[in-house]
Computed example of a mutant assay.
Amino acid sequence: MQFIFEQIDTAGDRNFGYLIGDRKAKEAVIVDPSFRPEFIVRRAEAQELKVLFIINTHSHYDHTFGNTIAKRLTGAEIIAWQGSDSQKDIGIKDLTQIAVGDFTLQALHTPGHSEDHLVYFIPHYNVLLTGDHLFVGKIGGTKDKESAQKQYDSFQKMLHLLPPEATVWPGHDYGCRPSSTLYMESKTNPFLMARSLEEFYEVKDAWKAIKLRNGLV
């Protein structure tokens, strides 16, 4: 097996999409095709990979926009959270495993930014695709206090279940670099450093000032 992992600029609001595959098995998945599905499909074709699935981290338009085109070009099935209202062929639940060649992606339900949000972990390579749940130095926004509490609980679950050496690959290029590690985020990301739900709320309330102080955009 030769693991293929490509982080791809998919336009929009600094969106990232991903092509992940097994070169030996000639199988791949596309994660969040966004606004450049044709480009990701061409990358798969250039490497003679059959795209089995189009996987969405969540249902927001900037991540699902390319689903229909990617499906038409590849014949792949669309995977999303089982309770999502978005277009899908396969609905999955928490801890579902998706096989691609000799590796698997494990889905972890992480509601907060959206109710249907999933992150995907590839255990053999310690790769973590975080969508809009976790960015480098930031996190995805929430609409109210209830969703913020769900988001906090999702972070505690993720930090408990996943290894600190997991590499973090987000859905947008919002940070000072395009990727990170779970350990680095736990030590530098103000939201993950919060020691309680109350501190988490405080960081959210003070985020504009924190962002300015840290030189984030």
Rank of each mutant, 00 (worst) to 15 (best):
L159S: 06
L159E: 05
L159Y: 13
L159P: 07
H160F: 15
H160A: 14
H160R: 13
L161G: 06
L161K: 08
L161T: 12
L161Q: 01
L162N: 02
L162G: 01
L162Q: 00
P163Y: 00
P163G: 11
P163L: 06
P163M: 12
P163K: 08
P163I: 06
P164S: 15
P164L: 10
P164Q: 04
P164T: 04
E165M: 08
E165Q: 14
E165D: 09
E165W: 03
E165R: 04
A166R: 09
A166I: 10
A166G: 02
A166N: 05
A166E: 06
A166M: 01
T167R: 14
T167D: 13
T167W: 04
T167C: 10
V168Y: 05
V168W: 01
V168F: 10
V168K: 07
V168I: 12
V168M: 03
W169H: 15
W169S: 12
W169C: 01
W169Y: 15
P170G: 00
P170T: 13
P170Q: 08
P170I: 08
P170Y: 09
P170D: 07
G171K: 08
G171M: 13
G171I: 00
G171E: 13
H172G: 09
H172F: 03
H172C: 04
H172Y: 01
H172N: 00
D173T: 04
D173C: 03
D173S: 15
D173W: 09
Y174G: 13
Y174M: 01
Y174K: 00
Y174R: 12
Y174C: 10
G175K: 05
G175E: 08
C176A: 15
C176M: 14
C176F: 11
R177Q: 15
R177F: 12
R177K: 15
P178L: 12
P178T: 13
P178I: 11
P178W: 14
P178Q: 02
S179P: 00
S179I: 14
S179F: 03
S179G: 05
S180I: 01
S180L: 07
T181F: 01
T181I: 02
T181A: 04
T181Q: 06
T181V: 12
L182V: 06
Y183F: 15
Y183M: 11
Y183L: 09
Y183R: 14
M184T: 07
M184Y: 10
M184E: 02
E185D: 10
E185T: 12
E185R: 04
E185M: 00
E185F: 08
E185G: 11
S186I: 09
S186Q: 04
S186D: 06
K187L: 13
K187Y: 02
T188H: 04
T188D: 11
T188F: 09
T188E: 10
N189S: 00
N189C: 03
N189A: 11
N189L: 10
P190C: 02
P190Q: 15
F191N: 05
F191M: 15
F191D: 06
F191E: 14
F191Q: 08
L192E: 08
L192C: 12
L192N: 00
L192V: 10
L192P: 11
L192K: 09
L192W: 00
M193Q: 14
M193D: 07
M193W: 06
